[in-house]
Write a protein that binds this DNA or RNA. Structure first.
Lengths: 145, 145
DNA sequence: ATAAATGCAAAGTCTTTGCAGGCAG
DNA sequence: CTGCCTGCAAAGACTTTGCATTTAT
């Protein structure tokens, strides 16, 4: 995963201004293991920035996603964000339905799945959902996806 | 894929009333290869049922999904529905980004992906996106996912 | 007959947009 | 100083809910 400094640098190098809010956002995502909803982000940021508005959160999430420092996933209960994985090597994720932490799967099934009838593959998704060790021992949150 | 009769029967056997609208819905989904948005469904149904309201479309889509006769996928541009595959054997899909037709992949990567540290697997997703033969020859629609 | 399905209207949720003032570079 | 960022307010897109009427069983 990118570090907070790498995120800031990457944003700066693409011409974005580095505000205190964006620095805090970078730190928040780096310190978070799982996915965050816009609301999660808003709630967290509100503690530090009174008068923060939702639209700024949305704007920044979208900009950071476009800059490539955040990844966005559409869960069944809405959009969620996390810091981009450093793209050293292609991989997939196991995602815990309890705490939403992710664990990398380095195995990629793509080479083994033969495309039918000249299907031109553009991208693929391989995601495994379940419960991590901790959440099995300590079940509390509902299934989310 | 289920037939229109099988859909109707399955709904009836679970206590739902079979209205003309639901019969038409069943037929629409059986006759459609790709995914339909609620709006697609509404537009189609409007032709036959003047005064149709959106909420009835939503209600029926949700009910049919809960009955297991429709499958729902969250695309990045919203929810879409299609008739359920008959569940004879577990499989995955290649989904065309042009026409949204799906092609089965019978290979399942799950047995090959080892779960880390006692991860208890609940479900998984393996989806391949690209362009089918026809849509490569005849590109027109934008990428949708 | 009676419980479910529908249409209508309204509300709810989530997200985006326009604008004026504020702040990073 | 200049243009990007922000907060505010409002609008927009999509989906759900409550209620009275209609309809399948």
């Amino acid at each position: 995963m990118l570090s907070a400094d790498e995120i800031i640098q990457k944003m700066s190098s693409q011409g974005l201004r580095i505000t205190d809010q964006r620095r805090t956002l970078a730190k928040l995502f780096v310190d978070t293991d799982g996915y965050l909803t816009p609301k999660d982000v808003y709630d967290f940021m509100c503690k530090k920035y009174t008068g923060l508005s939702f639209d700024t959160v949305y704007r920044n999430l979208r900009i950071m996603e476009e800059m490539g420092v955040l990844e966005q996933i559409v869960f069944e209960d809405g959009l969620k964000f996390r810091a981009s994985c450093s793209d050293e090597h292609h991989h997939h994720h196991m995602i815990c339905l309890g705490c939403e932490k992710t664990y990398p799967i380095h195995f990629c099934p793509m080479p083994l799945a033969d495309a039918p009838d000249h299907f031109q593959v553009v991208k693929h998704k391989f995601e495994v959902f379940g419960y991590c060790k901790d959440c099995q021992a300590n079940p509390k949150r509902q299934e989310q996806i």
